[in-house]
Design a protein around this nucleic acid. Structure first.
Length: 643
RNA sequence: GCCGUUGUAGCUCAGUGGUAGAGCACUUCCUUGGUAAGGAAGAGGUCGUGAGUUCAAUUCUCAUCAACGGCUCCA
């Protein structure tokens, strides 16, 4: 009996029935066989030793395939578990999956702790075990036998896993002295794991529920050779250099102070310039799109948040109330209720709609202490907020216009690595996490989906991520160190209009409740600037740069001329500064380069005599001499075009 | 909030049971130099905070605050 095997390039070859992908690899070349980690058989990832009994499409997976890597890392997690069990007998294991970059294993060590020193010892042990070239042995086992095995071992976590597995589909994998409940697949043998780094030890709640016991999680990453590990570590170092917390300090953008409080950033002069440029952009854009600006107080009475329905959902993340004369006031954690009150302050006609109220609103959210993260997660935030009140028939158009605004902004900033996430409700949580309006949920979710499809925007749908008042589109981005954040959000709200008794008079002279769109394309200043710092690696484009031009006289003799150029620049609104220190030009250039100032004008005798400046661009070097009027024209046009 | 790690000058970091150092930054002086670090001198810290052990604590112990790595949560 033979089987026909089709390869990814379309070629078909015939083999003996029962042949394994590894044997096929060997038939092609020994070199290939050495690199094979696993296989994809008809799209399913399987061990390279899996016998193939029928015609199939086969892909041999190596380190270069994403699936190959995750198999490699999953096997590495087993190797880690083997080392841990050898070091800490009696340890119980939960799960050990591959992740984006590496793997982890969750375990219960009882009263023992794993320290940083232990990690080094475990690395060594793993290395030792890997060198034994232990085969990953797959074994099908009955549920009863599996339960018996882990009952004897006393591992209640694996027994918990077993509960939900159907009999007949249960497999064990054994390498060396370690056996684990696992569906696989795995790499052929441990010897492929040549470079090991255990990165960190952390706590993680069992099943991700904070009410459960906290297990010990060890993170690690492995590679088929030392060189790739070194490169990986190098890359992590590079990522740290563009961490917005580091850049923010170096460039004088923001700081924190213990007396002010955690999560309460102080914006320094350079950061404030970036804030003001962003606000200018937002105001221009929103004005052109028919938005009206409003200003609202930072606090409000408890009654408003009861009306809005925020309090029961949100209380934990609001600062506790201030009580005066028997009335409780809360710092606002969102701007919507205030804006709704502006809507309802006057009788509204359909002729006024859509009404778009915009504000860079200051909000306070009492985020849990462990969640604070530089500018990305703070307790005082400035939101590029607006609420659009519209009739149902205008909704799609308005929602699309908002989306288009997002795209326009992202183009200005050159943001292209993001994912649009359509966040939906979970029917099981209606009435708890979500307003109990099943019909409206489905309707509005479909409207939003249609907008995305019609705009041809790639997106992913995620259930159970919606706001309590409606579905939303979140723009997801990743920080330099790989953490995921929502940069911007565009939300539908079919609940608050009714709660606030908002209404407008429609064409039929009847009161109608508007739909509300909550949108924040530039998110918050905090997160957006945190993101931009990393996105640009601190090298802001000229229009955003806190200092746009630095004048660098070669000697004190030219300070007067340089100052006159500074004044000319300032006159046309260019942010220019003079470096009049008695330092050599090399030193001045170095310092200015490090501050990532986009333009440097070097001024010496030649320039003074000819009314010129020598232009140097940050990171690019000397651009030659330009007449002052000429370079000013170039600069102002660049700034005007937000380049 | 939970688990773990860390906390010494503005920044980056050494160091010690007998009250502290380096480099950069800062101030002054010398230098006036053409595209990524010129030289010298000076100033700057109750070693995160509070308690305990000790003849003596920055160092050991405990508590607390903050930051960092995760978990949970979220714009």
């Amino acid at each position: 009996m033979t089987v026909n095997i089709q390869f990814p390039d379309g070629a078909v070859r015939t083999y003996e029935q029962g042949i394994s992908p590894m044997a096929i690899a060997k038939s092609i070349s020994e070199g290939l066989a050495k690199k094979v980690i696993a296989s994809s058989i008809n799209g399913e990832i399987k061990d390279a030793s899996t016998p193939i009994n029928a015609d199939a499409a086969l892909k041999l997976l190596t380190w270069d395939d994403t699936d190959g890597r995750s198999t490699f890392w999953h096997s590495s997690a087993h190797l880690l578990a083997e080392a841990v069990e050898a070091t800490f007998p009696g340890v119980k294991f939960w799960v050990g999956p591959a992740i984006d970059k590496g793997f982890y294993y969750d375990m219960d060590l009882g009263d023992r702790k794993i320290t940083e020193e232990d990690l080094a010892a475990l690395e060594k042990k793993m290395d030792e075990l890997a060198k034994k070239n232990s085969i990953f042995l797959r074994k099908e086992i009955s549920k009863a036998d599996a339960i018996a095995y882990f009952t004897e071992k006393g591992d209640e976590y694996k027994l918990d896993l077993l509960q939900n597995l159907p009999d007949g589909e249960i497999t064990f994998y054994t390498q060396g002295d370690f056996t684990d409940l696992c569906r696989g697949p795995h790499i052929p043998h441990t010897g492929l794991i040549k470079a090991i780094k255990l990165t960190t030890v952390a706590g993680a709640y069992w099943k991700g529920d904070e009410k459960n016991k906290q297990l010990t999680r060890v993170y690690g990453v492995t590679f088929p050779n030392q060189k790739e590990l070194d490169e990986h570590l190098q890359m992590l170092e590079e990522a740290k250099k563009r961490d917005h917390r580091k850049l923010g300090k170096e460039l004088g953008i923001f700081c924190f102070d213990d007396d002010v409080g955690p999560g309460l950033p102080l914006w320094m002069p350079n950061g404030t310039i970036v804030i003001e440029e962003l606000e200018k952009l937002a105001k221009e854009t929103e004005h052109a799109a028919g938005y009206k600006r409003v200003v609202t107080p930072h606090i409000a009475k408890e009654s408003m948040y009861l009306t809005s329905g925020h309090l029961p959902y949100y209380q934990d993340s609001m600062y506790p109330p201030m009580e005066l004369e028997g009335v409780k006031y809360y710092l606002k954690a969102m701007n919507c209720p205030h804006h709704h009150k502006i809507f309802s302050a006057e009788n509204r006609s359909y002729k006024e709609l859509p009404l778009r109220l915009a504000e860079y609103g200051t909000c306070y959210r009492y985020e849990q202490s462990g969640e604070l993260f530089g500018l990305m997660r703070v307790r005082c935030l400035h939101m590029n907020d607006a609420h659009i009140y519209c009739a149902k028939e205008d909704f799609a158009k308005e929602f699309k216009a908002v989306n288009d605004m997002y795209i326009k902004y992202f183009k200005i900033f050159g943001i292209d690595k993001y994912v649009m996430r359509l966040s939906l409700h979970d029917p099981a949580k209606l009435g708890q996490k979500y307003i109990n309006e099943p019909e409206l949920w489905l309707q509005t979710e479909e409207m939003v989906r249609q907008v995305l499809i019609e705009s041809n925007i790639p997106y992913v749908e995620v259930p159970d991520e919606g706001a309590f008042y409606g579905p939303k589109i979140d723009v997801q981005i990743w920080s330099a160190i790989g953490r995921e954040f929502t940069l911007a959000t565009n939300q539908v709200d079919f609940a608050q209009g009714r709660r606030f008794n908002l209404s407008f008079t429609n064409k039929e002279n009847q009161a109608e409740t508007p739909l509300i769109i909550h949108r924040a394309p530039l998110g918050t200043h905090e997160r957006f600037i945190g993101f931009l710092l990393e996105h640009y690696a601190g090298k802001f484009p000229t229009w955003l740069a806190p200092v746009q031009v630095k004048l660098l006289p070669i000697s004190d003799k030219f300070n007067d001329y340089a100052l006159s150029v500074v004044q000319q620049l300032q006159k046309v609104g260019v942010r220019a500064e003079l470096d009049d220190r008695s330092e050599k030009i090399g030193k001045k250039i170095r310092d200015t380069e490090l501050m990532k100032v986009p333009y440097m004008f070097v001024i010496g005798e030649k320039e003074v005599n000819e009314n010129k400046v020598s232009v140097r661009r940050q990171g690019k070097g000397d651009m030659g001499q330009f007449a002052v009027s000429e370079i000013i024209a170039t600069l102002t046009s660049e700034i005007e075009n937000r380049q």
